[in-house]
Design a protein around this nucleic acid. Structure first.
Length: 564
RNA sequence: UGGGGGAUGGUCUAAUGGUAAGGCGGCGGACUCUGACUCCGCUUAUCGGGGUUCGAAUCCCUGUCCCCCAGCCA
């Protein structure tokens, strides 16, 4: 590249600007962020945005990003989710060293802080029922009213809170509330519950506790305990920031991290909420959290997406505070860009039709050399067996082709990639009008694919030798939903918009024989088709199963659509 | 109708009082042993109305529209 080119200045998002200023002003000497998932589901592409942000910023500033499980609600959380989250973040390429934490590690500290709050006269045990608390909270436009238990003595609160912790009360009968302001226009400040009784064993602390702290109370203190400098979260927590700050201002904590909110990721043609993804899994619309159609990290991994492509996607979508919709094509382009450079090429016929080269000697087999990557000779080459009977793509032949069709048709010449130039002489149809075989002649002087007389052949198609081909199963994946925003209409379920053809399974695809040894999980480009990967679960030695990651851009298909 | 946020081409992001820029998409073309890749060109934007200023996407006033909040979820 010409070094006189203008340098490309990558825009810096508003969060990085704030952090840069904090470093410059001396407010902080380092940057410590955290990624705080609740282990109640699998991570999805939306989380990837947050992961890349938090880990990315730490990396850029020579700081660290803590991995912290926000596990304060044992009724929804499981170790299986913890494990999947750890696997997914590692796979994305991030490392937290020894900074692996759990909010549940802080239960004792959180309890002590609560006692402190009570002593400060800033928290009280409330015996209102769930329903009563709701009623006392008021509405968006009307202030709430104070709980009759609000002005208990410190001693009584201390005693009651200790007894809550000791299991003397039933679930729902008592809660600990922060004493703030029942008339606050911010509902989060109307004496929020900070501890509730949950007689549920916790996946890490077992039955040590029967009271569990709430998110708002836990998160800020966990951040402070860990010395987080910047606590990045999504927009819906903006209203919670006053409470975050209240807790840290009221208590004596090691530090007071700054919460900054950004807009969550929305992607067209998918749903992003954990609840809806769970629903798809539980109701069997997909095969599991790692179904290749799912936009979970595990689903994307199984589909064949690379960590680098997801990182570059997160890089390119930007960061802001306005609700935005990223087009699915941006994600698809991210893998295409990565795989175009890094995936070796191969040939595979998805919908085979037989071609017989009448003037090719019966029984003869030639080895044709094929580049593994036309733009990168360093990736080497492989040999393709060529013989009298081949398979080509059914869609590469037309009985009455229009002039713009650069493929096979009666009397037309086409190049078999890395093979020979062949001309169609005739074809055979069955009684239903389905093409059974196509007869061609080949030009023996065109070995390798180029004519010695320099004649131009516009079309090049892929092929495999019929007797050498590896029959295999290929799954053609497409978008899970048919509409840009499946959640747009509150009246209709998002499930109404599921794409019935999001997975088309082909049993009789014919791959070039070299593919027999492909490693499970490895990506490859099937030339002229798309990028595929050998499925890491269903492939067997010598019997790969392929997932289509994404098609190649297809301007011919686009052209055809315009005609219809 | 309380509070908190947000409005820049179709879409996402930049410009931080000084020529409204880039990506994706779309359209057109070049190249090509992948109708891929690559390359070139084009298209379209500051939510409305006032004001301050030599100069406003940016500052002020005002209006409109959109999102979030009434879990003992996170």
């Amino acid at each position: 590249m010409d070094t006189t080119d203008k340098p490309v200045v990558k825009p810096v998002d508003f969060i990085r600007q704030i952090i840069a200023e904090d470093l410059k002003s001396g407010k902080h000497r380092t940057t410590i962020t955290r990624f705080p998932p609740e282990p109640n589901g699998f991570l999805h592409i939306g989380h990837a945005k947050s992961i890349c942000l938090n880990f990315g910023i730490a990396l850029e500033n020579g700081g660290v990003c803590h991995m912290r499980f926000d596990d304060t609600n044992p009724s929804k959380e499981e170790v299986a989710y913890v494990e999947s989250i750890i696997r997914d973040v590692r796979w994305l390429g991030f490392d937290w060293g020894d900074k692996l934490f759990y909010a549940s590690d802080y239960f004792p500290a959180l309890y002590d802080y609560a006692v402190e709050l009570i002593k400060l006269g800033k928290a009280y045990v409330c015996q209102l029922s769930t329903e009563e608390i709701r009623q006392y909270r008021g509405t968006l436009t009307e202030p709430g009213k104070e709980s009759p238990y609000r002005n208990r003595s410190v001693e009584e609160n201390l005693d009651l809170f200790a007894r809550m912790r000791n299991g003397e009360f039933d679930e729902g009968s008592h809660v600990l509330r922060a004493k703030i302001d029942m008339a606050s226009p911010n509902l989060n400040m109307r004496d929020p519950v900070i501890f509730r009784i949950l007689k549920v064993p916790h996946h890490r602390t077992g039955d040590t506790w029967c009271i569990y702290p709430m998110y708002d109370y836990t998160h800020c203190l966990s951040d402070a305990i860990e010395g987080i400098t910047h606590s990045l979260c999504t927009l819906e927590f903006e209203d919670h920031r006053p409470l975050y700050d209240w807790v840290l201002d009221t208590l004596r904590t090691p530090c007071h991290p700054q919460q900054i909110e950004f807009a969550r990721l929305n992607l067209t043609f998918t749903v992003m909420s954990k609840r809806k993804l769970l629903q798809l899994v539980k109701e069997g619309y997909v095969d599991g959290w790692d179904d290749p159609r799912m936009l979970t990290i595990s689903g994307l991994r199984r589909r064949g997406y690379t960590p680098a492509s997801i990182r570059s996607f997160c890089d390119v979508i930007g960061l802001g505070k306005k609700e935005s919709w990223i087009d699915m094509t941006v994600l698809e382009n991210a893998v295409r860009d990565d795989l175009n450079v890094n995936a070796p090429r191969a040939m595979c016929v998805l919908d085979p039709v037989k071609v017989i080269i009448d003037n090719y000697p019966e029984g003869q087999v030639e080895e044709m050399e094929a580049m593994n990557h036309p733009q990168n000779p360093e990736m080497g080459s492989r040999m393709l067996p060529f013989s009298r009977e081949l398979f080509i793509e059914r869609s590469d032949f037309m009985e009455n082709p229009p002039s713009k069709f650069h493929r096979l048709g009666p009397g037309r010449e086409v190049r078999l990639r890395y093979g020979y130039l062949v001309t169609c002489t005739s074809f055979v149809k069955d009684e239903d009008g389905i093409i059974q075989e196509i007869h061609c002649t080949y030009d023996p002087a065109s070995r390798g694919g180029s004519a010695p007389d320099g004649r131009k052949v516009k079309g090049t198609i892929h092929w495999v030798s019929a007797t050498h081909a590896l029959p295999c199963r290929v799954r053609l994946y497409d978008r899970l939903f048919l509409v840009e925003n499946p959640e747009a209409d509150r009246e209709t379920s998002f499930k109404q918009h599921l794409n019935p053809h999001s997975r088309v399974v082909i049993e009789g695809a014919m791959a070039e024989p070299a593919l027999v040894g492909i490693a499970p999980g490895a990506q490859v480009q099937f030339e002229r088709q798309g990028f595929f990967c050998a499925d890491s679960v269903d492939s067997r030695p010598g019997q790969p199963v392929f997932n289509r990651i994404v098609t190649l851009r297809d301007t011919w298909a686009k052209e055809q659509q315009k005609d219809t």
